[in-house]
Design a binder for these strands. Structure first.
Lengths: 114, 114
DNA sequence: AAGCAATTTAGCCAATTTGCTAAATGTGTC
DNA sequence: GACACATTTAGCAAATTGGCTAAATTGCTT
């Protein structure tokens, strides 16, 4: 198990950044069901086409989706389905937000004295 | 299975936003091993104390960590361990970034004609 | 070549994020 | 109460993000 480096965390942060927008999540949710063209995704999100294009570019640059030109249309597809697993986790985060902290364990104090 | 709403995606995006910073990921990685005081996390990341404090506030507001004051010190703990599962996934994303799109499947074209 | 459709790129502006320094707040010791 | 320590809050400037409009690019049809 190699040690995670700062560079790793930076790369990870970039991917999380790509996910940190509701419109992009909506598109990913749709793409998890199969590839879609930009036109479909734009209609789904309801933003202007250039906005959608830029969002998709960010997802592509993060390595989450890939694109393929077919005639005048461009189709995008989800290339990292495991990101869809995040949603159950973040749903549980929502449930916990605002809860009080749990009592600390005894070894925590010991560690502090070492 | 309830349908995901825009509000859901917005909440999710907020959580991803909290994760979208290398310093914060570094701290979460450390917290996954047990609670830590702000002083320890600040030393780990190497930023000024007020910066760390603000980062931790963002993680707390997102519901990812919780805090507990003990005397003059404040200890933070990870309250949503499942976020640690994300890291393997994003590692795989890194490996795929820049790869060429895969050939579209036949039913993709059918769907488009419908 | 002209016209149209689909998409991307560029530029602008407002909003948000990030790191730092300074100030404020809370706790512990004498 | 005075002082030291730990942390949070406030304020500033720079960087980044997000949405829009305009322009550019690519592909198709006539």
């Amino acid at each position: 198990m190699p040690k995670t480096t700062i560079a790793d965390f930076k790369a990870q942060a970039q991917i999380f950044k790509a996910l940190a927008h509701p419109g992009r999540l909506l598109m990913l949710d749709e793409l998890s069901r199969g590839e879609r063209c930009v036109c479909e995704l734009a209609a789904l999100v309801g933003s202007e086409m250039p906005t959608i294009s830029r969002h998709l570019a960010q997802l592509k640059n993060a390595g989450i989706v890939s694109d393929e030109k077919r005639g005048a249309q461009v189709f995008y597809r989800l290339v990292t389905p495991c990101v869809m697993n995040f949603f159950q986790c973040v749903a549980s985060v929502k449930a916990k937000a605002g809860k009080q902290p749990i009592r600390p364990s005894p070894e925590s104090n010991q560690r502090r004295k070492a």
